[in-house]
Amino acid sequence: MAGSTLEIKDLHVEIEGEKILNGVNLTLTGGEFHAVMGPNGTGKSTLASAIMGHPKYEVTQGDIFLDGENVLEMEVDERAQAGLFLAMQYPSEISGVTNSDFLRSSINARREEGDEISLMKFIKEMDSKMDTLDIDKNMAQRYLNEGFSGGEKKRNEILQLMMIQPAIAILDEIDSGLDIDALKVVAKGINDMRDDNFGCLIITHYQRLLNYVTPDNVHVMMQGRIVKSGGPELAQRLEEEGYDWIKDELGIEDETVSQNA
């Protein structure tokens, strides 16, 4: 079997006592790209944050496994070490820590002591990936996300993705706030990652990213659950007709779960 497998089973999540996810089931395997779509407030970002272990989100029921290992028992850094990566919708700004120092620490965190990546090799790799993503070279020495524009932050998330090379990546609204040129650049970065050892969960409420990154499977979230799954043609139909037909089909009046979702 190529790549890793992420299994999400009957996942229930609360934030500050408010129920957001109400039983999500999803399996993603290396080599596959899945899109999770849905209107705002249906729980998509909560799913991403819960998988990575955001401190505000509490899993109240269900399981997440990565290659059979119980993800919910792992600390956030252990989840990352095990192969998970989340490109965040709102990455933190960290003053005084350069982008480059941060990235090198991230890469070395996966390596044994004494086997750290050489500075030359690191710089070479970062330079070439920054070229791919059309990122200004001085971003390496800027403080992590501090004063970055929305687009710069998104590119920086993808830069980290490309440098870290995780087994499974979750991209949380990576396309929001990007103009069409930036969107193409980010899509190129994601497509460059595609191989049998890499699985990707793309969370978005626009179909437009999927014009450039073709998903193998598309899932629609409403009311904190996956209510419909299909192939790329499902995304196409959502683009053309919106979400109302699904609501009608399933008899859903209000698709949202909460302001916080």
Binding site: V76, D77, A80, S92, F102, S105
Partner: peptide
């Protein structure tokens, strides 16, 4: 959380934040 989500340990993440 952000730093740890890249595989950096809690201690090291704290160290980076303090030095920063």
């Amino acid at each position: 959380y952000y730093l740890m989500s890249r595989g950096i340990s809690k201690v090291e993440a704290q160290r980076l934040i303090i030095h920063g």
